[in-house]
Design a protein around this nucleic acid. Structure first.
Lengths: 120, 120
DNA sequence: GCGGTGCTTTCACGCTTTTTTCACGCCACG
DNA sequence: CGTGGCGTGAAAAAAGCGTGAAAGCACCGC
């Protein structure tokens, strides 16, 4: 693991501003109402924005401990978080599923087709 | 570390960046959406870029076990991978067929120039 | 104590994507 | 032509995922 030079107080990803100390998230200046789990999940993903993060990693960094087989907590909270992000920023897509791998957090236009094979 | 070559975290082949730990592939910076099999096939080929790899080798390193007679899995996934690479990088050709031998992974201009490096 | 409220965990159903398998057709070669 | 090798669309089977809702808890005002 690389030693990060400093831990910032605020993360900026797309039009999101995540205030770590306060537990507050602003979307284009407007506050989102997130629960503790939702907030920590968002932070865990935003910290590694652009990378694919496995459910195991997300679970251990948000819930602590090992993800047990069959535990769908991560999926459920990803779904909740998506709902809130989507209603705050309908034109953005932040959470991308990579089946078999995990999730990737990255702001992209919501209609955009990624880079699918032709016809997708 | 004299004895064994370290295994890198990231492979670079042409304009592809293959992040092994994450299961993520970037083509000129943009994320490709690959399935698990597609990704592992790409990795198996990229690791031996420039060499001809037989179907047996590819099968055993991606699927594990022996390739059964008549099993076309490798061909099918080579085709899928070609499709995605081609739509991401239309000007490149990565996967070359050597009939009777196997496949060779190497970035080349996609034009139908039929020239070998030596002679021609 | 009691019912109400909000968060978390768990369960289950159905849809989507991936993987496997099958089959048809093209191509090079003898 | 006949044959081996290969590309690839599509059906069938399997795995993965999204999500509504039930159930368990903690907290709060009455």
């Amino acid at each position: 693991m690389a030693a990060s030079p400093e831990s910032p107080d605020i993360l900026y990803v797309g039009e999101l501003e995540i205030r770590l100390e306060e537990g507050l998230v602003l979307a284009t200046g407007r506050a989102l109402t997130l629960s503790v789990r939702e907030f920590e999940l968002l932070v865990a993903m935003a910290r590694r924005s652009g990378a694919i993060i496995t459910r195991e990693e997300l679970y251990s960094s948000v819930w602590g401990g090992e993800l047990r087989a069959g535990d769908r907590s991560v999926d459920v909270y990803v779904s909740k978080l998506r709902g809130k992000l989507e209603s705050a920023l309908p034109d953005r897509r932040f959470i991308h599923t990579h089946p078999g791998f995990g999730y990737r957090f990255q702001p992209e236009p919501s209609r955009n087709v990624h880079m699918e094979p032709a016809g997708g």
